[in-house]
Each structure stands twice: as structure tokens, then as C-alpha cells.
């Protein structure tokens, strides 16, 4: 569509956002083609005691870990886990949070109030603490990390959508649609939702970065995917006993987390500049 191309063009004009977009495209590319890009794909799960803790070299670009596996290859496969966790968790949070925000923002009755108070309860506890509690209770696995993250992240979307819908509801064009006799479901889906899409997209991008950070923290605490899985947070946790001698062990996964989170945040900020209705409307109106 034309609008999408416009947004992309504006986004690429902002260097920071372009870098963010590049990092994320690279991450997606790596996640998809990890088996082809990895130099030692077979050595991710196996033990090679003779190759333990080798510094970076031509064969092992980022060195090897305590099991003798190639860290470079593990990072590539770790991108898959990271992407799956972040996109599924944020996707589920969207599916829960956005409809609840739409309903509570539109109805403004006891039901809406009750839904908002529930989201307040979730927001009152720091996300990481709640996520630790949930995944600790359910046991370490990728599914439980995803569950913990989506259950703790949806209220952010609800808050955002609720506030946007409440202010939209007083807009003339929404009033006009009511006066025109347009059914409520149609107003919400066709008029309200597209007009709150921009802040949702921005929040999704920032939320992806945030979720990856939290997922890595859970992995670091041993609550993520179980041991042989090449999970970035867990790799850092494993490296601790070999620091500072095996400095490369923590460096690669640390850099990977840093770059990806920064990428999503840069893209989110860039999207906000391009999409945010308050900034855009000031220029477009009248």
C-alpha cells in the first residue's frame, strides 16, 4: 500500500531507525537460515571435551564454550529461540491486551472499570518479578517462559489502547458515526482500531526489545529453556565461572542481546516519530 511505503521511506530517512530496522532484519534472517550460516551446526548439542574453552580463532570465530561447542553457531541458533519467545509472547499479549483495552475504553461502565483494575494489579508488580514467579512455579521450559512473558505484558497494551480509545470516543468523526447509526462493532473495528494502530505498533516494537531482555534475564536465572538449548541468557550465566579468563564466552551472547534490544528500541523510537498521531496531526490538520 501507498501509506506503508511512505512510512518506510520516512523511517529510512532517520539513521537511528534505519540501523534498528537493519539489526532486526538481520536477526530474522539469521533465525531463519541459522543451519546454513552456522560453521559447526553439529557441535551445538554434542560434547567435544578436547575443544573446551578455546579463544576466538579462524575455526571458532567467537571461541568455544565449556562443552567445546562453537559459540558463534550457538548464537545463531539462539536467535531462533529469542525470536520465537519474543514474537509469540508479544503476539499473545497483543491478542489479550488490545481487545480488553478496546472494550474497557469504549464501554466506560463497571465492566470496563473492573478490567482496568485487573490490569492495574498486574502493573503494580514489576514484570520481571511476576515473570520469575510464574516460570519458577511452572518449571523451566520455553513454553512457560512465553506464558510468563505474555501474561505479564498484556496490561501495557490494555493501558495504551484504553487511553487512546477514551480520547478517540470524543472525536467528532466517532460521534458522527454514532449519529449515522453505524453499529458499535463496526465503529470499534473500522474506525477506532485503525486509529489506535500506530501507538500499538510502536509499543509492539519497544515491547519486543523489552521482552527479549526479560526472557534473557529468565534464562540467566535458569528459568528459560533447559540446558543444552543455546539460550543467550543462559550462555552468559554459564560463562560466569570461567571469567575473566574466557572473556569471549560472555562477550558474544552479551553483545547479541544488547544489539537486538537496541535494534527494537531504535525502531520503536523511529516508528513513534513517523506514526504518532499527536506529532503527525499537528502538521496535517487544517
Amino acid at each position: 500500500m501507498n501509506a506503508a511505503r511512505d512510512i518506510l521511506r520516512q523511517l529510512l530517512r532517520d539513521p537511528a531507525a534505519a540501523v534498528g530496522l537493519l539489526i532486526i532484519l538481520l536477526l530474522v534472517f539469521i533465525a531463519i537460515f541459522a543451519p546454513l550460516l552456522a560453521t559447526h551446526p553439529e557441535a551445538i548439542w554434542d560434547m567435544n571435551p578436547r575443544q573446551r574453552l578455546l579463544p576466538p580463532s579462524d575455526t571458532y570465530v567467537f571461541g568455544t564454550d565449556r562443552m567445546g561447542a562453537d559459540i558463534y553457531s550457538r548464537i545463531l541458533f539462539g536467535a531462533r529461540i529469542t525470536m520465537v519467545i519474543a514474537s509469540v509472547a508479544v503476539g499473545v499479549a497483543l491478542l489479550i491486551g488490545v481487545p480488553i483495552g478496546l472494550i474497557s475504553g469504549w464501554t466506560q461502565n463497571w465492566l470496563g472499570e473492573a478490567l482496568m483494575r485487573v490490569s492495574d494489579i498486574f502493573l503494580a508488580v514489576p514484570q520481571i518479578v511476576l515473570a520469575i514467579a510464574i516460570s519458577q512455579t511452572l518449571g523451566p521450559s520455553i513454553e512457560n517462559v512465553i506464558l510468563a512473558l505474555s501474561v505479564t505484558y498484556w496490561p501495557w497494551f490494555t493501558r495504551l489502547v484504553h487511553a487512546e480509545v477514551r480520547s478517540l470516543k470524543n472525536e467528532t468523526f466517532i460521534e458522527a458515526a454514532i449519529a449515522l447509526g453505524v453499529p458499535t462493532w463496526r465503529i470499534i473495528l473500522l474506525h477506532v482500531l485503525p486509529n489506535v494502530a500506530s501507538p500499538i505498533i510502536v509499543r509492539t516494537s519497544i515491547g519486543m526489545g523489552f521482552t527479549i531482555l526479560t526472557a534473557s534475564a529468565l534464562g540467566f536465572l535458569g528459568l528459560g529453556a533447559p540446558p543444552p538449548a543455546p539460550e543467550w541468557g543462559r550462555m552468559i550465566a554459564e560463562s560466569r565461572e570461567f571469567l575473566p579468563e574466557a572473556w569471549w564466552y560472555a562477550l558474544a551472547p552479551g553483545l547479541a542481546i544488547f544489539l537486538v534490544v537496541m535494534g527494537f528500541n531504535l525502531l520503536g523510537d523511529g516508528l513513534r516519530d513517523v506514526l504518532d498521531p499527536r506529532i503527525r496531526r499537528a502538521g496535517a490538520r487544517r
Binding site: T172, F173, E175, A176, A179, L180, G181, H191, A284
Partner: peptide, 19 residues
């Protein structure tokens, strides 16, 4: 009833969805 009884805002242009 709406089709027969209509309301025109001060500026009917504002009653258009900007998107």
C-alpha cells in the same frame, strides 16, 4: 431511525474519518 433523522456537526468535514 438514524437514516431519517440526521445530525450535522458544526464542521461536517470533521465528521470524516481521517484515515
Amino acid at each position: 431511525v438514524a437514516p431519517r433523522l440526521q445530525y450535522c456537526h458544526q464542521d461536517p468535514g470533521n465528521s470524516l474519518d481521517p484515515r
